[in-house]
Computed example of a mutant assay.
Amino acid sequence: MPEIRRYAEADWPSIARIHDAARLDELRDSAGVEAFLTLEQTAEGEGLFDGDLWVAVEDGEVAGFAAYAEAELTWLYVDPARYRRGLGRALLRHTLANSSDETVECTVLDGNPAALALYLSEGFEVVETRTGGLAGNESFQATGHIMTWRRSAPAR
């Protein structure tokens, strides 16, 4: 199980590297790699630091990160060299557990079946699918699945 902790400034090179590698995978079968912008180019404009920012640490190295603001999971990326090890699931569960919101939203690009499967397996539901400007690079079109998760009532 990875350690999940709050982001520290020293984590920037790691999360930038992780984002830039994983974002290319995310775009490959959706908006296209031509739409790629680095984390350096998009972090401020896309509100990376607007809420909570968590990093997953595995074997002493930052291996993924998740950002959460205003009832929305806004970023979740894992180092491609560490895909399918449960890091994304751990970050997602940590984020949901640390949210006080009853409903959480996220958007998954069409063409990203691994992310879609992860969110569905954790109780998210697709509530809408829409096509429009790609967040962060609006000159490219993308189709996204807007998903919501609702906190369950405690068992009695």
Rank of each mutant, 00 (worst) to 15 (best):
G60T: 02
F65A: 01
R84G: 14
R82Y: 10
E125P: 12
D25N: 08
T38L: 04
G136K: 01
T129C: 14
E61Q: 09
A10H: 05
V78F: 05
D52V: 06
G47L: 12
C106M: 08
D59I: 06
F140S: 05
P2N: 04
A81K: 05
E105I: 13
G47S: 12
V55P: 02
G86V: 10
T103P: 01
G32Y: 07
M1D: 13
D59N: 14
Y77H: 10
L109A: 09
E40S: 15
N137E: 10
G111D: 01
L73H: 02
T74S: 12
L91G: 08
L37K: 06
G144W: 01
G133W: 02
T95F: 13
V108N: 10
E72Q: 10
E61Y: 07
A115R: 00
W54F: 13
R6D: 14
R89E: 14
A43N: 01
S121T: 05
E72V: 13
S30M: 09
F65N: 02
G60E: 08
R82H: 11
V78G: 03
H145D: 12
L53T: 00
R6W: 07
A67Y: 00
E26L: 12
V62T: 06
D59C: 15
F49T: 03
E102N: 06
S14M: 11
S121K: 03
E34P: 01
A66P: 14
R85P: 12
P13A: 04
P113D: 07
